[in-house]
């Protein structure tokens, strides 16, 4: 059964396009990445699913129910973490979390303490005293404390340091193992690749592709930048090299293929420096929809 079904969802803010004709579905228990640059429509999609904004056309069903007319029932089973977190500044963290828990009609104290310990969150401080990263931790705890069946995470790692990002990913994976379905929006390809089973790529309000993450890995391009001792020459005998650019001591190209083959080919060169990295999102989009230039 599909946990979330988005059907031709379209949202315009006046004449400004939010998302257009979006259709996709999430299966129970999957972690779905939703990736795209700022303004692509990721947040609009999540807000429409939550009933915070109203679709111009189309809609979504969650757990088989309409997300607008039955939103109040559906949200009982949803955990939501917005990209920017704001809470009632005068409240203490624990009071805010208990207020949040009071909406779900169950005792969440044990879970609040577990999550706060995992995220190293001080429950006794006032919201206004917290740094942005700590407010984000409050957001994480309040999004997970009622053990939701669907997690809607909108750019969840912004503001978290690398250690906390890791803890957070562990928590999300634990929730997923428990049975929660995860909808995870991000503009960072690596974290989506790390976490997700499938990924939807958004651009200009449209869902341009849904990829299985394994397929994407196999298809994945690497951006390779080399600095050579002598004047660089194109003596790389390697399949999968595209867009090769050479300039004095530098060589840049995209590579798609077996990484061992690449490393073996590089080992034969007289290098000063080598950088192998993921292409930027923009470059991935260009890969799908235009010429690729390293």
């Amino acid at each position: 059964m599909n946990v979330l079904e988005v059907d031709r969802l379209t949202k315009y803010y006046g004449k400004v396009r939010g998302v257009e004709n979006l259709s996709f579905a999430l299966e129970k228990g999957e972690i779905f990445g939703f990736i795209g640059p700022n303004g692509a429509g990721k947040t609009t999609t999540i807000r429409a699913i939550l009933g915070l904004v109203f679709p111009t056309r189309g809609g979504a069903r969650i757990f088989g129910e309409d997300c607008i007319s039955q939103g109040h029932n559906i949200r009982r089973r949803i955990g939501y973490l917005p990209s920017e977190v704001f809470y009632y500044d005068q409240m203490k963290v624990m009071d805010l979390l208990l207020y949040s828990a009071s909406f779900y009609g169950k005792d969440c104290r044990r879970r609040i303490h577990e999550l706060s310990e995992a995220m190293e969150l001080d429950l006794g401080r006032r919201i206004e005293e917290l740094s942005y990263g700590n407010k984000k931790k409050v957001g994480i705890v309040q999004g997970l404390l009622h053990e939701p069946d669907l997690l809607l995470l909108d750019e969840p790692t912004s503001g978290l340091d690398p250690l906390m990002q890791r803890r957070f990913f562990e928590l999300v994976l634990e929730e997923n193992k428990r049975g929660a379905t995860v909808f995870f929006s991000s503009h960072i390809l690596s974290e989506v690749q790390h976490m997700c089973m499938r990924v939807g790529i958004m651009k200009d309000g449209n869902l341009i592709k849904i990829e299985n993450i394994e397929t994407m890995r196999q298809d994945n391009y690497k951006r390779v930048s080399l600095r050579t001792k002598g004047v660089a020459t194109a003596n790389l005998r390697l399949d999968g090299v595209t867009n090769l650019l050479q300039e004095n001591h530098t060589v840049k190209f995209f590579y798609k293929g077996n990484i061992d083959s690449l490393l073996a080919a590089l080992a034969a060169l007289d290098l000063v420096d080598a950088v192998i990295e993921d292409p930027s999102l923009e470059e991935i989009f260009m890969h799908y929809y235009g010429p690729v230039t390293p």
């Binding site: 949803i78 500044d89 909406f103």
Partner: peptide, 17 residues
Amino acid sequence: RELTADFLYSKPVSRSR
């Protein structure tokens, strides 16, 4: 105005309520 709407309106309570 204080940007707390996301917190409150994403809770399992209808908007009319």
